[in-house]
Design a protein around this nucleic acid. Structure first.
Lengths: 145, 145
DNA sequence: CAAAATCCGAGTGAGTTAATCAAGAATTTG
DNA sequence: CAAATTCTTGATTAACTCACTCGGATTTTG
């Protein structure tokens, strides 16, 4: 039940980009400094987010990254799925990537006790993360500083 | 966000013990066979559960394991905490094992965006797992077979 | 005492995580 | 055009975790 550094950094990076949204693009090292993320690691986080269509990038001297979508259109769940894969705590209750447990003795899904507990857990997690957008994320932050 | 094999096996093992509750004690290999768990691995799962006071054991020829508490007194959350540690997806939102993230730039807990999202996630997970007992676990199973 | 069972610590191989490095391609500035 | 800056991409790595595995000690029964 753990959130990876990758996802954590990814969310914090997107937060920085949200705060700058519309005004400027941000460069790797700016994001990295502000959020204390190792630059080279950040690099490999921004790439999949770009490929997923969340942000754009420009190379060269005045390059950098910027959000493509609006903050209220990007959910935390989306980001975590891109960086870390399915939200489900066990693959047999995943909706986006269902997979039978190889050694599970319960042929019938409905009768597997693990699924009966973990199904609702998956739904609860997804429900929160898929309804929490970058906008909310940034809002909480602004209130603080 | 993943449930370990250890916890999964632990829950399945406790299910077997619940089904046998009152009638007999079960031995490692019986549990292992019925739930298709490697015996030696099962061993190191049952031990901490014993130390936590969930079950008793007897050594020697007519030995085995049995539940100490009643199934409705043991929650899934408890079991997972014993075997895998805190439920929280990130230590800074854990209630049983809070720890500041070493590199988090947000001094004030209330203003950290990560905590604002993950706090509710932790609560939702704990709420489900701490209200789901072994009795429920076994009930779903019985209905099936 | 011998057989059968749990107890317990240590070890191991594969895989994942969190970075790090280096070479390359695009873009802008002078 | 050349140099500087920045993103792009793939490879590599060190540390750690996961899922077992093993060997030996202890306890109980027959």
């Amino acid at each position: 039940m753990k959130l990876s550094k990758k996802s954590e950094y990814g969310l914090r990076a997107l937060l920085e980009l949200t705060l700058a949204d519309g005004t400027t693009t941000l460069q790797r090292h700016q994001i990295a400094e502000r959020q204390r993320i190792p630059v080279e690691f950040l690099e490999q986080i921004l790439l999949p987010l770009k490929r997923a269509g969340l942000l754009s990038s420009r190379r060269g001297m005045k390059g950098g990254y910027a959000l493509i979508k609006r903050p209220e259109e990007i959910t935390v769940g989306q980001v975590i799925r891109i960086l870390d894969g399915p939200l489900a705590p066990i693959s047999c209750v995943s909706k986006t990537a269902y997979q039978k447990c190889p050694d599970c003795p319960y042929a019938n899904k409905a009768h597997c006790p693990v699924q009966q507990v973990m199904g609702p857990v998956r739904d609860a997690i997804a429900d929160i993360l898929d309804h929490h957008t970058l906008k909310d994320f940034a809002a909480g932050h602004r209130k603080g500083s």
